[in-house]
Amino acid sequence: MQLFKRRDIIFIRAQGKKMKKDMLIRKLENVEIPELLIVSHREKLKVVLIEGTAGMRRPGKAPMPAGDFIGAISDAFNWLRAPAWRAAAASGLALFIVAAVLAAVFYVAGPSPAVIAADVVKKDPAIQQRLTGSGEIIIVRVDVRDGMASVVCCRGMGDFIEADVDMNVRTVVQTRRYEGLFMPELPQAEQDKAIQIALSDIRVKDLINSGAQIGRVFPIFSSISNMTVVNGNILKVTPAASQAVVPVLLNGKTWLVQVDLEEMKIERVIEQQSNSPNLFDMYYLRQNL
């Protein structure tokens, strides 16, 4: 029979404890986690949150006191949880209460001046005519000061228009056109990085092995780091490109590999269809500018 010294026993117990803790950690890391979705609830809650405020502008109405808000939440839950036969009776009242609460949150200011100015520009027929390019009008920047707004907008790959909006009468009073200089090349190092990320995808590797070639890498930017007027009539836009598209071409077909340069990963790989819009129009995204 083997005799253990006391310190050995303590050591063995400690080792045993450590192993069990390691096992528990592995179990926690590897346990299958439920990921569920209740679509109806998501849709209903959105209606309660968002659409209940539509058109509900009641100037002069005092915000609901906190206690009534709690009651409104409770009513909202009862509406969400009630069986169908009770929901028919309760839904109208609950919706009204919740909508009144939510309207009180939004009624004071209504849309911000920037939103109003952007809306005026988008709807101005003269601007719609002056803008070149195709697609929706994109508002690039809005600057509101002293009752006037300066709105820079563009459409597709066209030029930029800068519009001055009189906020008192909500009308465009002056416009200036700038030739757009907004598509700088990605630095070579970034292009190489994008290609390396794309090549980590098995589909891209297969295409390359089949004889595909890499096309010109171009940036996707989600924000603008700088916008300056150059020589009086050229608007130079410096993007902050965190993503890029690597085209892969084989036998007349193109695959577009969208990569995230910061997180060093592939967002998606799409086979461009022959009847799809121009590559640049589709992927030279100007979201959230």
């Binding site: 209740i38 679509v39 109806s40 609830h41 209903k44 969400l80 949880r81 009630a82 069986p83 169908a84 036969w85 929901a87």
Partner: peptide, 9 residues
């Protein structure tokens, strides 16, 4: 509940 998303739940 027997609401219209009870099945989903």
């Amino acid at each position: 509940d027997t609401g219209d998303y009870a099945d989903e739940i």
